[in-house]
Structures are given as structure tokens and as C-alpha cells.
């Protein structure tokens, strides 16, 4: 997670040696290609909405490693590692959900699809291996309901969930 902290609180925390983390409804950006906004603080809790890389979400509360966020008119939970408040953050520049890359204001050029394309061009011997990887990425998909059914069949119950999944 990359979130800025309440400065006054942080200075006080430094003086007292205690951790103070306060969020004043901070707007942060999604760093994953897509993220489920979950109903509860559980990895496979029902999905209320899907946010995409560079989308803004508003942090309402923090219960590490979870953040309660507002996205559009939906409120739910995501993991801290899914967002950044770093103004210098580097995004992929991938176009998603109709947002053109040039509209993703904070996108600066780092290692991204353009660089990978150039790397592939310079290393044609890797073409077959890239095709294998892409077939795996596109073909091996495991939706939440399949994972949940697998967990239930194997009687896998994360302790924190108290069997309430």
C-alpha cells in the first residue's frame, strides 16, 4: 500500500512512539488491472463492483490489511496493496473500460506493454514461449464461484471467517 498519513498524527506518533494512521476520506488510485470491491473483509466475499487500474476510490476506513472504500455509489472492501496515493506512481498505460491511455493523467512511462513489445521484437526467439504464456493467461481462468466450491468441497474454512462463508 502507498497511502499518505495524517502528518500531524505522524509527528505526534513519532514523539510518543505509537502508530497513528488516520485517513481523511483520501482519494487513491487502483494499481491492479482489475479489483473486486468486496462486500465483506474476505478474499472471496461477494463482489459488489469491479474497479480498474487508475480508477479513483475514496478510502473511508482502514482495518489492515483491508480498506473500506467508496467506488461510485458502492461501498465495500479492498486490500491496501490494491491502491496507491503516490503522485509519481507508474501505471501500465493499458487501455481499459473505454478509458484511453492518454486520459490516464498520472501514467508515466515505465516498463509497460510498449517496452515488452519492443523487447519481443528484439528477441524473436522468445515468440513461442510468449505464446504459451498468453495461452495460459487467457485459458486458465478460475472464477470466484469455482474457487469457493473447491474450498467447500475440501472443507477449507479460513479461521477468521468462522465458517460463515
Amino acid at each position: 500500500m502507498v497511502l499518505s498519513r495524517s502528518l500531524g498524527g505522524a509527528v505526534l506518533a513519532g514523539a510518543l512512539g505509537v502508530a497513528v494512521v488516520a485517513y481523511a476520506a483520501e482519494v487513491v488510485k487502483i494499481v491492479e488491472r482489475e479489483v473486486a470491491i468486496r462486500r465483506d473483509k474476505r478474499t472471496y466475499s461477494p463482489r459488489l463492483a469491479t474497479a480498474y487500474e487508475t480508477n479513483d476510490v475514496t478510502v473511508l476506513a482502514s482495518e489492515p490489511p483491508w480498506l473500506r472504500v467508496r467506488f461510485g455509489n458502492v461501498e465495500g472492501w479492498i486490500l491496501e496493496s490494491s491502491v496507491t496515493s503516490d503522485p509519481k506512481a507508474v501505471f501500465s498505460g493499458e487501455a481499459s473500460q473505454g478509458v484511453r491511455v492518454t486520459e490516464q493523467g498520472a501514467a508515466r512511462r515505465g516498463f509497460n506493454p510498449e517496452v515488452e513489445a519492443q523487447y519481443r521484437k528484439e528477441n524473436p526467439d522468445l515468440a513461442a514461449a510468449f505464446r504459451t504464456l498468453e495461452a495460459i493467461e487467457k485459458g486458465w481462468i478460475y472464477p470466484d464461484d469455482r474457487v469457493i466450491a473447491f474450498m467447500e468441497e475440501g472443507k477449507i474454512t479460513p479461521p477468521a471467517e468462522g465458517g460463515s462463508r
Binding site: V31, V90, S92, E94, G110, F111, P113, A129
Partner: peptide
């Protein structure tokens, strides 16, 4: 490196 850069690095390492 950022989360997305890590992804593109990881893809090419995987290819290796």
C-alpha cells in the same frame, strides 16, 4: 518498480 511494471517484468522472466 510499480505493480504493473512488476507484471511486465514477471511475464518476460516467465518466458525465460
Amino acid at each position: 518498480y510499480s505493480t504493473s511494471e512488476e507484471h511486465y517484468i514477471g511475464r518476460s522472466v516467465s518466458v525465460q
